[in-house]
Design a protein around this nucleic acid. Structure first.
Lengths: 212, 212
DNA sequence: TTTGTCATAGTCCGTCCGGACTATGCGTTC
DNA sequence: GAACGCATAGTCCGGACGGACTATGACAAA
């Protein structure tokens, strides 16, 4: 029997997952959580074999959960679920120590199968149905932004101009422009509009308004 | 007994909904669909009391389902579900003839309750927990774009400049600029970046790449 | 019929953007 | 220690953008 902890802020999706796992004899859902904090706490007290977590959570990223739990336990299965299967997130999940990466648009059978894989080989990364997308990105020049570029991107998304970005990050305008230009290159964008739309579609920019 | 048809492209969410409705005696899920076309077809053959549909579907908008079904049947309950409860969508749902508008982050009990309301009073619009957001928008100048503005917005999102937009829509550049300026006003944006990010967060721009 | 909204179109002008370059210093990796 | 990636910084310049206006015709609602 494989025990499972579900982390997702949408009750609807938790129920869907619970139903899916409940229908399989070899799995038992032992807990649910709706946030990073609750999820980590629940994982530490319940010690499930597998944790299935959403990427986007109210108080942070599901990848934080993954990182925290992986650091403490090399054997735990960590399945990352995501609504928009941006490849950027895929690499981040890989880095964080996830066992599997599955889109929410995947059939439930895929999630079950990923969880099974994760419970057997937690340190083997599987991304059903996304290998293709991964290869596509890899070969097409990819779009992995550096930390600095991501910071600049955030500010771009808030509508700041070059001067404002430079000011906020204590850079010269030239440097800010360099970063912006490199972001365009990596995203295959010709201007801000394309860059931001692409970035949002890839999940590089939060789809919810920033705090404050 | 109230019969329900579920329309959502995510199997996970369909299962969640099916579970939620299944747990209530007075409801019976009689069918599921994953697209606009299938949804309309299913509704016409199954004649459910209530249709619960997602807004974002692979082949169009859930609001198309709502419009189509409402035109044919004034008594059917039409509950619109959405991931990102943009208020723009709320008004659009109201216009389309929906009975209720619920965010996917709402507890399942809210969805059930909305469906019950919808079955009792299909033409009374209820939007649990969103009245606040609605009022906020209404009083803060609102953001309902005209059809033309939406077309322009689409092109902006594709990274086109004023000249390109004018060309595509057979307008003078002045007119294109007028539309763009009005979009900024309505969205409270100072430039393209803010307009596009806001628009995407409000669900005015598709979060998936356009066909082709 | 008057009011309002929408789409259309225009002018003027200062500002900002984006492209194409080059270059230096600092870590890491091989 | 050489090579590489990254962050930093600079120049130059044409073209695009955004703001602040005004205005007209069509059409619908009051």
């Amino acid at each position: 029997m494989t025990t499972v902890l579900l982390i997702d802020d949408h009750e609807l999706i938790r129920q869907g997952l619970a139903g899916a796992f409940g229908a399989v004899d070899s799995f038992e859902v032992v807990g649910q959580a709706g946030s990073v904090a609750d999820g980590i706490a629940a994982a530490q007290s319940l010690r499930p074999d597998v944790v299935v977590t959403d990427v986007r959570l109210p108080d942070g990223s599901g990848l934080d959960v993954v990182r925290t739990l992986r650091r403490a336990d090399k054997q735990i299965g960590l399945v990352v679920l995501t609504m928009y299967a941006g490849d950027e997130q895929l690499f981040a999940a890989l880095d964080a120590g996830a066992s599997a990466f599955v889109g929410k648009d995947a059939p439930t059978a895929t999630v079950i199968s990923a969880a099974r894989q994760a419970s057997i080989a937690p340190l083997t990364f599987t991304c059903t149905g996304l290998a293709e997308a991964m290869v596509r990105r890899m070969s097409s020049g990819a779009a992995r932004l550096t930390d600095r570029e991501r910071q600049v991107l955030e500010l771009l998304a808030e509508g700041h101009g070059v001067a404002a970005i430079a000011g906020r990050l204590y850079l010269s305008e030239s440097t800010a422009k360099s970063h912006i230009g490199r972001i365009y290159d990596k995203l295959g964008a010709a201007n801000r509009a394309q860059a931001l739309v692409t970035a949002m579609r890839m999940g590089l920019i939060s789809s919810v308004a920033p705090p404050g």
